[in-house]
Design a protein around this nucleic acid. Structure first.
Lengths: 206, 206
DNA sequence: CAGTGTGAAAGTCTTCACAGCT
DNA sequence: AGCTGTGAAGACTTTCACACTG
């Protein structure tokens, strides 16, 4: 759809717009201007308009954007107009916490299984989900057409497990392990590391 | 120390360098070149050199950087040469998971208390930590000189609780609630939202 | 008019490429 | 030879400012 290539940084902001729109909707608004959304999100109106303009002309002059409409368009653009199955690899503390987090289901992601290599965990249930042997991961991923994985294993194991996942068909990984995964270019990786954020913030203290 | 103002984006990468150095050290190296670190981190050597040059000349020509030395310098720069007490606000699923995560202590952060407003939780222990009444937060923060907080309350409550924390002396917040906190400029806020990352990645699927 | 969409300007960040040190 | 530190170039991002529209 986009005539010109869309910068990744712009794509990264679209989910924020979706979040702002959800808030607008909850407060009963049917139209939202770039200014209102910008205020809610703590960013500039111009940036929102420019970002959206990469994908089309969604606004009405003098009115702003129709909330429902823009929400639907953004969902299409982000491929959120369907349900995405996800697997969680690693059933330790982080994996369990992530599995129990309801915020994914709310956004159209369905966590459908956990994987671990610890025999003591395999076969048990965590947050209502069965823990499978990680060796059965490829089979499971292929059978269910899973594309997304959240990786919550110890750093030492992460690279090998990630490669296993990718070879089975996983093409996007949300990585909680504190290292850089080296994977083929066609695989998207995003990292989450709270410790990194804390270390960043202490720079500004004192 | 820095003669020229350091871009925030550069500060954000320093913890990554610390992580690379820890890995180098574990594998017994005493010197690390920008090239080696860059490879480990998946970035360019030039960027590492430029980033470090904001803070001084730490490298030895022809050798690279002395691992231990650079590690110590970066720790100083990031104010990680001390222990930082942290409070966690919100003892629900996320707060509990974060409290149990050992990764903070490993990096010099000491989680020292949890706060909640649910009478059923107050007084109990989670991950070995007492859950306090959130109304006693200001008192606690002042008494212990806490500057850092992790915020893990429902979105509706987040802004009010954040203001309470800031008025008590908190000056940096790691926010897990899915909204933009509006706080005075002197307060640093960083956000963690896994759902946002997933929504970002699905753009590139199919 | 209020508010979009957008070129052009300004600002920021990354990479290049090379002098200079060990 | 090998690698740092760094101006200058290049790439990317944000902001400005205004023509245009319902």
């Amino acid at each position: 759809m986009p005539a010109k290539p869309v910068p990744d940084i712009v794509v990264a902001r679209l989910p924020l717009y979706l979040r702002a729109l959800a808030a607008m909707r909850k407060s009963g608004k049917t139209f939202a201007s770039s200014k209102e959304m910008a205020q809610w999100l703590g960013m500039s109106p111009a940036q929102i308009r420019k970002d959206l303009s990469y994908f089309g002309e969604f606004g009405k002059q003098g009115m702003g954007y129709a909330v429902d409409d823009l929400q639907a368009r953004l969902r299409q653009i982000l491929h959120l107009d369907r349900e995405w199955p996800i697997v969680i690899i690693g059933a330790g503390r982080i994996g369990s916490a992530v599995a129990a987090y309801p915020g994914f289901a709310d956004h159209g992601f369905r966590v459908c299984a956990l994987f671990d290599n610890d025999p003591a965990k395999i076969g048990t249930c965590i947050a209502g989900l069965r823990v499978h042997d990680v060796r059965t991961l490829p089979e499971f991923v292929r059978a269910h057409g899973v594309r997304l994985a959240m990786l919550a294993v110890p750093a030492e194991a992460a690279q090998a497990v990630a490669e296993l996942a990718v070879s089975a068909g996983i093409s996007a990984i949300l990585n909680y392990a504190p290292l850089n995964l080296a994977l083929p270019d066609h695989v998207r990786v995003e990292n989450i590391d709270p410790a990194l954020h804390l270390q960043h913030m202490t720079y500004y203290l004192d």
